[in-house]
Deep mutational scan, measured.
Amino acid sequence: TTLHFDLDGKKLQYTGVSEEIARLVEELKRRGVDLKEIVRILEELLK
C-alpha cells in the first residue's frame, strides 16, 4: 500500500506500507490526530 500526505506544502509518499499500518493511519485521521503527529508515528513504525 502507498500512503500520500500533503504536510505544510510538502508531498510525502510512503510505499510498501502494510494494510495494518494503512488502517491505523486512517483511524488516527478519523480521530482527528494532527497530521504531523501521524507522520511522526508512521516514520517510527517504518524504521
Rank of each mutant, 00 (worst) to 15 (best):
I21Q: 10
V25M: 06
D8S: 03
E19L: 09
L46N: 03
L35G: 08
F5V: 04
L28T: 02
R31L: 08
L45R: 08
E26C: 14
G9I: 01
L7M: 09
G9Y: 02
G16Q: 08
K36D: 07
E27A: 14
Q13T: 15
G9F: 02
K29Y: 15
T1E: 11
K47S: 11
T1L: 15
L28V: 03
L7Q: 03
K36V: 12
R30D: 07
G32R: 05
L28K: 04
L28F: 13
H4A: 08
V17H: 01
V39R: 03
K36M: 09
L28C: 02
K47A: 11
L35N: 09
K36H: 14
K47I: 10
R40M: 12
E37A: 10
V25F: 04
E20M: 06
T2N: 09
K11M: 10
I21S: 05
L28M: 14
E26A: 14
L24M: 13
E37G: 05
D34Q: 11
V39F: 03
T2R: 03
L7Y: 07
F5D: 01
T1C: 02
E43M: 05
E44S: 13
L35E: 10
K11R: 11
E27L: 15
R40C: 04
K10Y: 10
T15V: 13
K47M: 13
L45H: 09
E43I: 05
V25D: 00
I41P: 00
T1H: 15
V17Q: 01
L7C: 04
K10A: 10
E20V: 06
L24I: 14
E43Y: 05
K29T: 13
I41A: 08
D8F: 04
R23S: 14
L28H: 06
G32V: 05
K47E: 08
L3S: 00
V39S: 02
K11P: 09
E19K: 08
I41H: 07
T2D: 14
V33T: 13
L45S: 10
V39P: 00
E26S: 12
L7I: 15
D8Y: 03
I41R: 11
A22F: 13
K29L: 12
I38Y: 01
E27Y: 15
E37Q: 12
E44G: 11
A22C: 08
V25C: 03
S18Y: 02
D34I: 12
Y14W: 06
I41M: 08
L3P: 01
H4N: 11
